[in-house]
């Protein structure tokens, strides 16, 4: 249970950790949009170097970042294979029945894989460097304008932060209950799919019971302190933009602009046009033979 890396906070003292959470959300959005405009291998390399430098700045082990990609490995290969098999344009290398493999198809599939892994690595960077509380505060602050059209932003933020706050507790609880049932001889690891599901019942039922109990207790605790989600509540930690957020913004925007320039001005061939062509030719050459 403790191996879940996606969406987990990694505590460290770094510039990236200290960036304003709202800024980091905006950067992540920019990065996500940017990734979809990356056209050349050179630019992928550039984005990757950018990502690795941010990780180094954040003092997060690279291993952790790759672990988050491992989680989507299956999706990665699945989309790649589908793309290779059914992409229609480009020079045909192999054709058989409804399957047609083209050089452009292979190129497209590789780029898709790079895109998805960069996407996951970049977004997990946000949760690695931002505490869940800071994240919900930031989301609340960013969604504030919606209160004018009567969206209960504050309630949503509270619900989200409570849900996030429950996750570590529930993971711990699951571990404990699994231990307790194992001590009673429960066999949780072996057997086929149906047997495994059945074997999880002694864990799931107590887990649900305890989740409801916790929720109930929390609701009582909130009620007894007269909590209501009024919009005029003040915060203990007020979010404030600093100079470093501005610097970071400039860097991210620069990357974004570079991606767009590469795609629309240089035509997706990369700054070092030769290298990109070479890679593409190499791939088609290898498969073509």
């Amino acid at each position: 249970m403790k191996d879940v890396t996606f969406g987990q906070y990694y505590p460290a003292e770094s510039v990236i950790h200290r960036l304003d959470a709202r800024a980091k959300i905006i950067f992540s959005l920019l990065y996500m949009i940017g990734i979809f405009f990356v056209a050349s291998y050179t630019m992928y390399l550039a984005v990757f170097i950018f990502l690795v430098s941010v990780v180094a700045l954040a003092k997060i082990p690279l291993k952790l970042l790759f672990k988050s990609v491992k989680a989507i490995l299956f999706i990665l290969f699945f989309t790649a294979i589908i793309n290779v098999l059914f992409y229609k344009q480009g020079n045909v290398l192999v054709e058989w029945w409804i399957i047609r493999i083209t050089d452009e198809g292979i190129n497209f599939a590789i780029k898709m894989m790079l895109r998805l892994s960069l996407l996951v690595m970049g977004t997990s960077l946000l949760t690695f460097t931002t505490t869940p509380t800071a994240l919900t505060d930031a989301i609340e602050s960013l969604l504030k304008p919606l209160t004018y059209i009567k969206v209960p932003v504050h309630d949503l933020a509270i619900i989200m932060s409570i849900a996030l706050r429950f996750i570590p507790g529930l993971i711990e609880e699951t571990d404990k209950i699994m231990m307790a049932q194992k001590a009673r001889g429960a066999n949780l690891d072996t057997g086929n799919f149906v047997q495994k599901i059945k074997a999880m019942l002694p864990v799931l039922i107590p887990l649900f019971v305890s989740a409801f109990r916790r929720a109930d207790e929390l609701a009582d605790a909130l009620d007894s302190r007269c909590y209501n989600a009024s919009p005029n509540r003040t915060k203990m930690k007020v979010l404030k933009y600093e100079w470093r957020d501005l610097v970071a913004l400039i860097i991210v925007v620069a990357l974004f602009v570079a991606i767009l320039l590469d795609k629309y001005l240089i035509g997706g061939e990369g700054i070092f046009v030769g290298i990109d062509r070479l890679i593409a030719q190499l791939i088609s050459g290898m498969v073509g033979r």
């Binding site: 404990k176 209950i177 231990m179 307790a180 049932q181 194992k182 001590a183 009673r184 001889g185 429960a186 019942l201 002694p202 039922i205 107590p206 019971v209 305890s210």
Partner: peptide, 27 residues
């Protein structure tokens, strides 16, 4: 696990069966 019995903290949180008999019979 049959020869070393382990009673965890708050063991009542591990009860899950529909009857006391079934729960005690689990082990």
């Amino acid at each position: 696990r049959g020869s070393v019995g382990m009673v965890f903290q708050y063991p009542e949180y591990q009860l899950f069966e529909e009857s006391v008999y079934k729960d005690v019979a689990f082990g």
